[in-house]
Design a protein around this nucleic acid. Structure first.
Lengths: 114, 114, 114, 114
DNA sequence: GTGGTCTAGACCACC
DNA sequence: GTGGTCTAGACCACC
């Protein structure tokens, strides 16, 4: 797996990284059981701080996409379709915010579709 | 505006139609103030039932994309970006359901991103 | 072991009883291998219906706290800490419901803490 | 509001802090609309790092207990009962982990109660 | 060796 | 002035 940071991208680094992993899982290039690089290792190879990598991984962990444990590294747990849903959900929030919608309004755009 | 129904598409006709209008608004081909064809007229030109057209329009109205009033026709009210958010929200719901997520779980995927 | 039913308590009798046993296990007054009174015997000594006692025992069995087999009586299987976790889980559900949370929302409050 | 860090407590500082705020909201000492100290201010008064305070606030934000916005500070949004449910949920997770339960098993102890 | 937490300090974006 | 992000570096807990 190759990741790349684009300094011109206005998104924060940790979000760029999380997005790339989400897409990789979504497209099947990464799947359940696959190991992600250790925090320090990825930080070094991308020449960014280890906390920045941690923040990206933590976001994916909260989404249930990866499992991260002390001493055991970071493992993909969710399937591609789940990653795709998370990526779409992220876009809904991003576009909604760009429009100035409140959090409750964003939730409502989804509820209307249910 | 041109609409086209694809009989091979597994989506119901009214959803095909709603989706095309959503995309047209999303891409700026239709904007606030633009009139959509009258229900009867569009039904006739597409050779589909009048209720099918009404169902498509009703869905867009619930989303806040168009305004529909007796005697005054159907008018686009939302801007492109709003349509884009609605389209993304629809995809979140569609993909989430395909995965077997409950409604609460779908909402949660969005809340996690907020 | 002493159990007591409080008629002023708004909780159903079987829940009062289950709660007392849960707490007894949680505090170490009852532990793995200990026998609970036979259904009929406890019903008689508390002057309540036999089905009420059975309902309390059944709840504890579903939680994995006791083992109940025909002809062999009721035996505590879980240790104190497990009973404590079950008691806390019960409180989460009770308080969550009092607040009007849906089942999915209650589960979510726990998932957020994981 | 007074907060205090106990260096002998084996819980991480940010969790101690989050717990104290959760309890304050749970007991009604803090309620919807109340402002929490600014990140830097609280860090200084407790003589801890500002990131440690941020982590505590971020945890409460993910729980929906507070709202945190750039330029506007940190505000309590949830009511006491919600804070109480979150505190119970946290205890379920803590006790469950101490027993070596997996995340799925912890969730199950709650589902059994539903 | 791996992640978890904490510190110290910087610059930026939004108010 | 407020939080948001990033860096550099430390020590610890669990494997």
């Amino acid at each position: 797996m190759l990741f790349a940071i684009d300094p011109r991208d206005r998104q924060p680094i940790y979000r760029q990284l999380a997005g790339q992993i989400r897409r990789a899982v979504g497209e099947g290039r990464l799947g359940p059981g696959d190991r992600l690089p250790a925090v320090r290792q990825l930080a070094q190879s991308l020449d960014i701080n280890l906390h920045t990598v941690r923040q990206a991984y933590a976001e994916l962990q909260r989404e249930g996409l990866v499992d991260m444990r002390r001493g055991r590294g970071v493992t993909v747990v969710a399937s591609g379709p789940m990653a795709r849903v998370n990526e779409l959900a992220r876009q809904v929030v991003e576009e909604g915010r760009r429009l100035g919608l409140s959090e409750a309004q964003i939730i409502r755009t989804v509820e209307v579709q249910l």
